[in-house]
Amino acid sequence: MNQGHPVIAVTHVRRAFGTKEVLKDISLQVEQAETFGILGPSGSGKTTLVKLLTGIDEVTSGQVEVLGAQMPKLSMLQQIGYMAQSDALYTELSAKENLEFFASLYGLRGGNRTRRIADVMEVVNLQEHLRKRVDQYSGGMKRRLSLAIALLHEPPLLILDEPTVGIDPVLRKSIWKELRTLNGNGTTIVLTTHVMDEAEKCDRLAMIRDGQLLAVDTPADLLRNTGAASMEEAFLYYGGARR
């Protein structure tokens, strides 16, 4: 997986809100074209870490580098496709209008924009619902539309916060297949999850609890090193070992 410069380099990052320390001395690297999972229970600091990676939030100390540039940096946002935990869609607009709006924000226009919209809607299997208003979408459909929007501008780095919540197993499988294809094309993917079996599908995994990085390794190595039978056990092992 080591192909030169890391896509993301997080070094000794601390993030505190007032006196509450949400992230404590996190260091990790994400290599190109891998799917990097951030696994942790809710409230562990996953979303805060993701916001630092996307440049929406700033570190209290330490530094975050994305594609060689120190974050936060406005021009880097063009290189990142972000899917937030909340669906963040304009529900009174149609899917097409939502897609067109976000595509324009990323500078896509004309035929290229139309083509990309068709492409991403096919990826998430929503092409028949393009003209439907988003408030008529189910929870899973909204999730997929959010993902489609993140893919619009073909970013080299995708950051997905809990991408498969509320999506049924069949569709989840097809989304994973698509993420794999994106990996194959050189796209780096960072995603957060609290679902253990999904974590196993990542190339490498960071386990976070209470703002602390417990371990970073491939799922197989995490299992081997802890002698655990499942990812859940491995997580508990690291969590317990820290105490």
Binding site: I56, L77, A84, L89, F102, L105
Partner: peptide
Amino acid sequence: TTGTLERLLSTPLK
């Protein structure tokens, strides 16, 4: 409140 502002701010929009 719907999170779209955060979404907007994750784009290169100034």
